[in-house]
Amino acid sequence: MTVADVKAALDAEIIGAGDPETVVLRACACDLLSDVLRCVTREKAILLTNLTHLQTVRVAEMVDAAAVCYMRGKRPGDDVIRLAEEKGMVLLTTKMTSYEASGQLCRLGLSGCEHD
């Protein structure tokens, strides 16, 4: 699955210069960033989160995630967008809630991340 598929499923918008062909392997709906860091199977994941600050991109970077999607129409600040572009991290925003977006992506066959 690619970011373009996610974008279509969530009726989302790509923020900044993210590449729609970026591969997404799994998804994680989480607002506790330490929990995102908790397991090591976040590689190429899309992170669905209610947060919008800079550390969403930092954490995604640390775990080698592919994309961050901001929920309920939220948009991050320019500094976040700049950092994401620098790190090659794709940012999206959708009007859906984390719950609805998770349902949509599960339906498409995307799996969750394993936890310990």
Partner: peptide, 20 residues
């Protein structure tokens, strides 16, 4: 034992939609 993402998938399957 599921993740939030996985649990959301199961609940959708049961018919609990998320439309607002």
């Amino acid at each position: 034992n599921l993740s939030a993402f996985g649990l959301a998938g199961e609940l959708h399957r049961l018919g609990i939609g998320g439309k607002r």
